[in-house]
Computed example of a mutant assay.
Amino acid sequence: MPKVLGGSLAAHRDEVRARVFEALRGLLYERGFDAVTLAGVAAAAGVGRTS
């Protein structure tokens, strides 16, 4: 079963969203659009790829 971040499902969704967008921003800045993958964003955010 996946680990729920935060105290509720809503908090979990907010935390995952924030992590994903922060990771995406950093990867775009470091590598550029063509080098970014969904798997890479998920790994950098510390979440599962299906998140």
Rank of each mutant, 00 (worst) to 15 (best):
A42F: 05
V16C: 08
A43K: 14
D34Q: 06
V36R: 02
S8F: 07
V16P: 03
A44Y: 07
M1I: 06
Y29K: 14
L27K: 08
S8T: 15
V36D: 05
L9F: 11
A39G: 12
A23L: 01
A39V: 05
E15W: 03
H12V: 04
G46V: 03
D14W: 05
G26M: 00
R25S: 12
A18R: 15
V41W: 04
A11K: 13
R31P: 02
D14V: 13
A43G: 13
R17D: 05
V47T: 01
R19G: 10
G6R: 08
M1P: 02
G40Y: 11
R31D: 08
T50R: 14
V4Y: 10
V41N: 05
R13D: 13
A43M: 02
G7I: 08
M1W: 07
T37D: 09
A44I: 12
V16K: 05
L5F: 14
D34H: 06
A42D: 06
A44D: 08
Y29G: 05
L5N: 05
R25H: 13
A39T: 09
Y29H: 07
R13G: 14
V4P: 05
A39S: 11
T50I: 03
F21P: 03
R17G: 00
G6P: 06
V16F: 06
A45K: 04
A35K: 12
H12F: 09
A11E: 15
A23M: 04
G7R: 15
R13Q: 14
V47P: 00
